[in-house]
Amino acid sequence: MPTRAPSAASLSPRVSIVVLTHNRPTELARMLQHLASLPEQPPVIVVDNASSPAVDPTRIPGWGQARLVLCPRNEGAAGRNRGVAEVTTPYVAFCDDDTWWEPGALATATILLDADPRVVALSARVLVGPDNRFDPACEAMARSPVTPPPGPPLPGPALVSFMAGAVVMRTDAFRAVGGYEPRFFLGAEEVLMALDLAARGGWIVYAPEVVTHHHPSAARDASHRRLVTLRNRLWIPWLRLPLRWALSESRQILREARAARLVGPVLREALRTLPWVLAERRPVPPDVLRRWLEVYRPHALRPAPACLDDEHAVSSTPMPHPLNNRPR
C-alpha cells in the first residue's frame, strides 16, 4: 500500500524523530542522510548510547541540524527515554541507526493520529534490505486477531505490541507509562510498554501506509541478546499477567531457554530480581488480558468471560510465542 501524500498542514513540525545508536557511525551517517531528505523536515534527536568513541557530529556526514544526547553508559532501550525528554512535538517517531522513515510516512502518521485519539501508537510497515522485502512480523500484524474497540473503525488492525524501532507514538502516552523499563536493556522491551499503554486505555495499530526501511547492521551480539530477551520475556508475565498465565508463559519460556542451553543463566537472573518483579507487579485489566489471549492463547478463550479472572483455572497448552522471531 503506498504512503499517503502529505498535506501542507501535516508538514509542520508535529512529529520528532528519536534515533538510538551505539558504536555504528557508518550506519548512523547513512540513516541521517535519509532523514535529511524527508519532506516533513522533522526535528531529529540522536541518542548516543555510550559509543566508544562517543558520537562526534563533526565526523558524521549528513549530521545537519540533529541534536545530540549523550548517555553516560549504555542504557539499552531506555536510552530512548532521554531522547523523548527533549521532544517538544505531540508525536514522536523512533529509529534505530539501521532504520529510516520513507518520505511522507511521518506526515501520514500525523494524519492518522490526529484523526483518532484512541490510537496511541502506529506500528509501521517495515521493508528490509535493498530489495525492500516485506518484514514477516508485519505480515503477522496485518492478520492480527485482536478485537477492535466499539465505534468507528481503527486506522488499521489492532495489536498487542509493536516494533520499537519502527513506531510513531503520542509523546504524552510514552511519558505517561514512564518510557522503557531500564532493567530490560534490549529485548522485548516494547511488549511491557504495550501492555502498559493498553492498560491506560490506549490502542496500538498496524498502519501499513506508514513505511520505514530496515537495513540490518552486522554489528550485533546475538548470543547476549538471546539471553536478555529470554530473561525479559520471563519477567513480563510476572509483572503484568494474572497468576495462571504467568505460570503458563514461564513454562513455555523455560522450555525455550532449555533448548538454547540458557535455562541456568535465565533462572539465576530471574531469581536475583524477584523482589523487584513482585514490587512492580500490576496485572493488566481483563479487557487487556483478552487482547493478549487473542494473540498468544486463542484456544484458551471460552464463552464465559469470567474465566479471564480465574487465576486457578487449568492452563491450556502453550502456543509458540511470536516474539521468538521478532526482528530487531
Score class of each variant (00 low, 15 high):
S12R: 15
P13T: 07
S16F: 01
V19F: 00
T21H: 01
P25F: 01
A29E: 12
L35Q: 15
A36R: 13
P43E: 09
A50R: 13
D56M: 01
R73T: 13
N74A: 15
N74V: 01
E75S: 14
G76I: 00
G79V: 03
G79D: 01
N81A: 03
V92T: 15
C95T: 09
D98H: 07
L106Y: 10
A107C: 14
A109G: 12
V128D: 06
G129P: 02
P130Y: 05
P130D: 15
P145S: 05
G151L: 03
A173E: 11
A176V: 09
Y180Q: 07
P182D: 00
L192A: 06
D196S: 11
G202Q: 04
V205C: 08
V205I: 11
V205K: 03
E209A: 09
A219Q: 12
A219R: 12
S223F: 00
R225Y: 05
T229E: 05
L239S: 05
L241W: 07
R258E: 15
L262P: 06
V263D: 15
P265K: 04
P265N: 06
V266I: 02
E269T: 11
A270C: 11
W276S: 07
L293I: 10
E294T: 04
L301R: 10
A304T: 14
D310M: 06
V314C: 06
M319I: 04
P327Q: 12
R328H: 15
